[in-house]
């Protein structure tokens, strides 16, 4: 028998007895204890991410580098109009060509206060792998795009429309050896979020 038919037939044959109705998922209001953006920042910092207040007087990249204590990067790959990088994502032939990127800059589709997550899809990333191959990730997030909970985030259209949608909550991390936490296990060594409203021209994707 065709394996598909065999599996489906076995599943039907062995169907558990009983009704087992699908329960409705109620709306859970997550306690945000104060302003949503502040709640987001607290959550993200517990997950190893950093939150940077935008400094209107300083250039964004300069302020980021100063704030995170990074050496001046050689290769900056930007998917946002606010920062001009020196590696054009539109010309990347293969994702591996991004292996030498020091800093990648993207804008999040939304943020989640409950967990400190940012949501990214191929629309924001352009080349998905940039968010993992870069050494450091800088994410711009409009405070107006922060939702309260993970439940609320799943109401977003991205989960029905995007090819790839990912919550980033802090940097790549591991504590597989004696529980000692290390940032930059395989992906980015740091993740910094700047709470910066969208420019009028950068309409959400």
């Amino acid at each position: 028998m065709d394996p598909r038919d065999a599996i489906l037939a076995a599943v039907r044959r062995n169907r558990p007895v009983g009704e087992h109705p699908l329960p409705p998922v109620p709306h859970f209001a997550v306690s945000e204890a104060g302003e949503r953006a502040a709640c987001f920042a607290r959550s993200l910092e517990l997950m190893g991410g950093k939150v940077l207040e935008p400094d209107p007087a300083a250039d964004l990249l300069t302020a980021y580098l100063r704030g995170s204590g990074l050496a001046p990067p050689e290769i900056v790959c930007s998917a946002v109009p606010e920062i001009a990088g020196n590696r054009d994502l539109a010309t990347v032939a293969h994702p591996r060509d991004l292996a030498d990127v020091d800093v990648a800059v993207v804008r999040a589709a939304c943020g989640v206060a409950e967990t400190g997550s940012v949501l990214l899809t191929e629309a924001q990333l352009q080349v998905n792998a940039v968010a993992y191959l870069a050494q450091h990730l800088l994410v711009l997030l409009d405070p107006a795009d922060i939702v309260a909970s993970i439940h609320d985030a799943y109401d977003r259209p991205e989960f029905h429309q995007a090819r790839y949608a990912v919550f980033h909550t802090g940097p790549s991390a591991t504590a597989d050896i004696e529980g000692v936490l290390v940032h930059g296990a395989q992906g980015v060594r740091s993740l910094t979020v700047v709470l910066l409203p969208r420019q009028p021209s950068s309409v959400p994707a």
């Binding site: 959550s43 517990l46 997950m47 190893g48 409950e114 967990t115 400190g116 997550s117 191929e122 998905n128 993970i150 989960f159 995007a162 090819r163 790839y164 949608a165 990912v166 919550f167 980033h168 909550t169 802090g170 940097p171 790549s172 991390a173 992906g187």
Partner: peptide
């Protein structure tokens, strides 16, 4: 005991 994993990835369609 962590509110979420660092990455929660949703794959729907192959990329371009």
């Amino acid at each position: 005991g962590s509110p979420i994993t660092q990455y929660t990835s949703h794959f729907r369609r192959p990329r371009e």
